[in-house]
């Protein structure tokens, strides 16, 4: 039990809006072990980012955590708790999606990195500066001494994302949450950033939660995958199992809608329709209206059950749903 770094049990997040209550997370459970890399994949609005925000205690009105709990090394982790500050931002850090707006334009890069170090590790200004130089070279920025005195607007997008990662790993965290860290970057920079993350995992034993909708990134970097759909995890498993034999029709659809260079004759699948609105989510399987294998039996609530080496929330787990659709 305590071998997990982070454990989330049955987490529910609701947003109170004037149109009604939006159920953004509907019972999400996941866990991550030290040094492990977990990918959370899913389409827009499936609850990936909300999960990350909930962990970091960043859920703000109109959102609220309405159920479930988050455990850090076995202890409940709530932003309001004394002591959570030492964990959040120090042992758990987050790299945001948009490197353009996540840095303060009025502070030099060096000052921003040093701030993290001075705050959490109690370093003196000089020591923090030295550490900042180390960090910048660690994330592959050339001429780090010069870069320290530059402002964010003087750096390119990829550089800024590296600076964000340098800030993220400044206190040698145990867990880094990367919320679509490469979405705003072009593919060559994207590859470099991912390589950097993989390297950090080896060198400082970092556990990573990678939030993305790009399956290509997942296959290259991650150990385990959790697939989210409409505020729930519909399938988890090792990256090998998920790609080799996906069990949930949605996962199958996702993978078959990604072009593969080595498979010639298979046509790409497109999953028609849109995800259900979370104002009034269906009580049964949320994927039913879009599922080619669905029938009347799928109307009952689906929960994550062990299937093969992983777990799936589907009463028809394992069947090849898209056979006829192609």
């Amino acid at each position: 039990m305590n071998s997990f770094l982070l454990q989330i049990n049955n987490l529910e997040v609701n947003f109170d809006t004037r149109a009604g209550t939006v159920q953004a997370l509907r019972g999400v459970s996941l866990s991550i072990a030290p040094g492990e890399t977990l990918a959370i994949v899913g389409e827009s609005g499936s609850g990936k980012s909300v999960t990350a925000q909930a962990i970091m205690g960043l859920i703000d009105v109109p959102g609220r955590i309405s159920g479930g709990d988050i455990l850090w090394e076995g202890q409940p982790l709530t932003a309001a708790k004394v002591g959570a500050r030492h964990i959040l931002g120090k042992e758990v850090t987050m790299v945001f999606q948009n490197p353009m707006t996540s840095l303060n334009p009025l502070m030099t890069v060096g000052a921003q990195i040093s701030e993290v170090i001075e705050l959490h590790l109690g370093f003196s200004r000089q020591a923090a500066r030295k550490r900042a130089v180390e960090l910048l070279s660690l994330v592959g920025i050339s001429g780090p001494e010069r870069r320290l005195n530059q402002y964010p607007h003087e750096l390119s997008g990829g550089m800024r994302q590296r600076v964000m990662i340098a800030m993220g790993i400044a206190c040698e965290p145990k867990l880094l949450i990367a919320d679509e860290p490469t979405t705003a970057l072009d593919v060559t920079i994207q590859a470099q950033i991912l390589e950097l993350l993989a390297e950090l995992r080896e060198t400082i034993g970092l556990a990573i939660i990678l939030i993305t909708h790009d399956l290509g990134i997942v296959a290259g970097l991650c150990d385990r995958v959790a697939v989210m759909y409409a505020g729930q995890i519909v399938e988890t498993g090792s990256v090998y199992d998920i790609f080799e034999s996906p069990s949930h029709p949605y996962t199958q659809g996702l993978i078959r809608s990604t072009p593969q260079l080595d498979v010639k004759d298979e046509r790409l699948v497109s999953i028609s329709g849109t995800p259900p609105g979370l104002l009034d989510p269906p009580s049964g399987c949320a994927f039913l209206p879009r599922c080619p294998a669905g029938d009347g039996g799928c109307d009952k609530p689906q929960s994550l059950k062990a299937f093969g080496a992983g777990a799936v929330a589907c009463c028809k787990a394992g069947i090849d749903a898209w056979k006829e659709a192609v």
Binding site: F15, D16, T17
Partner: peptide
Amino acid sequence: ERERRFARAEA
């Protein structure tokens, strides 16, 4: 802000 006020009232 309007949604936020609504949510606070609900809370």
